[in-house]
């Protein structure tokens, strides 16, 4: 169960907005996190408290393949992203990094910036405590659940090597 304040961003938020290329000179999650969303708005990350939730529109994470993007979000203290939809590479990266990504389509309109949310990942239910809305999410595809069950791609590969 995750509880936190919603930080809402728009549609087609690209990876250059999430973490501009000039910050890609490190692989350190904390350092990347301190510059999270710097390409959207200077100093954006200052509003985030540990455990807060990112809420986004359509095609979140489009653009480059940089895994630094989900890492920057994790580094900023955000464990969960709720979006209308995700760009393909970002979606795969998020799972590999252990960032929880929920897809809710048009229901994203039921969340405003600053709303307090409660997310039950197992049941796939998002409660908007501020508005009282309850949003159901699509289940995680089975093949991705298998990777999650193993604790991410790194462990999945460790297992495969033994096999």
């Amino acid at each position: 169960m995750y509880k936190g304040r919603a930080h809402k961003v728009g549609a087609h938020i690209d990876t250059d907005a999430i973490i501009p290329a000039r910050f890609l000179v490190t692989t350190d999650t904390e350092v990347l996190g301190s510059n999270c969303m710097e390409g959207l708005e200077a100093g954006w990350v200052k509003r985030v408290k540990k455990g807060d939730i990112m809420v986004a529109g359509e095609n979140f994470g489009c653009g480059s393949s940089r895994e630094h993007a989900p890492l920057a979000i994790i580094g900023a203290g955000i464990p969960v992203v709720v979006a209308h939809s995700y760009a393909r590479i970002f979606y795969r990266n998020g799972f590999n990094m252990g960032l929880i990504l929920l897809e809710i389509g048009d229901d994203v309109k039921k969340i405003e910036d600053g709303d307090d949310l409660e997310v039950d990942v197992i049941k796939g239910v998002i409660k908007n405590i501020t508005s009282g809305d309850v949003i159901k999410t699509s289940p995680v595809p089975p093949f991705m659940q298998e990777i999650l069950d193993k604790g991410g791609l790194v462990n999945y590969v460790k297992d495969r090597k033994k096999a």
Partner: peptide
């Protein structure tokens, strides 16, 4: 197709991907 670094690391080890 493009992927993230960890998927690429997995492919470097296994020689395959999904």
């Amino acid at each position: 197709t493009g992927m993230g670094s960890t998927d690429i690391a997995a492919a470097m080890v296994l020689g395959e991907t999904w």
